[in-house]
């Protein structure tokens, strides 16, 4: 896969669940170093859109292009499917996802979680993977938790561990699906701090979040979704501080 300045493009993505159309033709272009934030009320389709990008959901229409490589689809009786699952697996390994509920593998220690995909998907030597994992755990402040199992850690620690797991893939793009929504308020700060560090070092990131202040701070682009349509999009200063639509204004208004 050639490296280009545009690691991920999504064009005209549509998705239906039954008869309900949740994504009505969404496009997005992530350039190297972009931090793109998707905001919107629940049910606006922002998580589904993110999950279409690494094909955890299969879009019914539209194109996905990772660098210059388009993903090929074919129509089956179960709906549209990628033509070549090997290609999808290869591409997913480049787009690390961080989940709302962390989804660390429960039967593995934190360190084992971090080295799992580098060793078994990327084929890295185990020793090298462990060294890298240790320095990543150090970076997210969890080196002393390397031998803990996920259930033995707090939510905030699990999420920082999950970010280390994502970083271990040395991803082209990081996808964050509401990474702080399942956390107790006092644990949110540590996770956001780690994410801010990633944005500052120029990682390409696409994130779905409810943390508007954080989005204003780190994003290069903010996209506001409403009922499966991009209602507003642009620089954070423009979208968040000077919203054009009444709906976005209401969405951003302080909740009582």
């Amino acid at each position: 896969m050639a490296t280009t300045a545009t690691p991920l493009q999504a064009r005209n993505i549509k998705k239906r669940f039954g008869t309900h159309e949740v994504l009505k033709g969404l496009s997005l272009e992530a350039h190297q170093g972009d931090v793109i934030t998707l905001i919107g009320a629940s049910g606006s389709g922002k998580s589904t859109f993110l999950r279409c990008m690494n094909l955890l959901e299969q879009p019914d229409e539209g194109e996905l292009i990772v660098h210059d490589e388009p993903i090929h689809f074919r129509d089956t009786k179960h709906g549209r499917e990628p033509m070549d699952w090997k290609q999808v697996e290869r591409i997913r390994a480049k787009l690390s996802m961080v989940f709302q509920n962390f989804n660390l593998w429960a039967h593995m220690t934190l360190l084992e979680n971090v080295i799992e995909a580098p060793v078994h998907v990327l084929g890295k030597p185990k020793k090298q993977a462990i060294d890298e994992a240790r320095s990543l755990l150090d970076r997210v402040g969890l080196l002393d938790r390397a031998d803990y199992y996920p259930t033995q850690m707090s939510g905030g620690q699990q999420q920082r561990g999950a970010i280390a797991r994502a970083l271990a893939m040395d991803p082209e793009v990081m996808l964050f699906d509401e990474p702080t929504s399942a956390l107790d308020p006092e644990l949110v700060g540590d996770v956001l701090k780690v994410m801010r560090g990633l944005a500052d070092e120029g990682r390409t990131m696409i994130l779905v979040t409810h943390e508007i202040a954080f989005a204003r701070d780190v994003s290069s682009q903010v996209i506001y979704l409403h009922q499966g349509v991009i209602e507003e999009s642009g620089a954070p200063a423009q979208v968040l501080d000077d919203p054009r639509s009444e709906r976005l204004r209401q969405f951003l208004a302080p909740k009582h």
């Binding site: 290869r90 390994a93 690390s96 996802m97 989940f99 989804n103 660390l104 593998w105 039967h107």
Partner: peptide, 30 residues
């Protein structure tokens, strides 16, 4: 098997056999 753990395995590019061998079976056996 927790749905989220399977999803994480898919999201990290694991093929079905690899996922079965590394994630699903080890945790199911336990």
């Amino acid at each position: 098997t927790a749905k989220g753990e399977i999803e994480a395995a898919r999201a990290y590019g694991m093929s079905k056999p690899l996922m079965l061998r590394r994630i699903v079976l080890p945790s199911a056996f336990r």
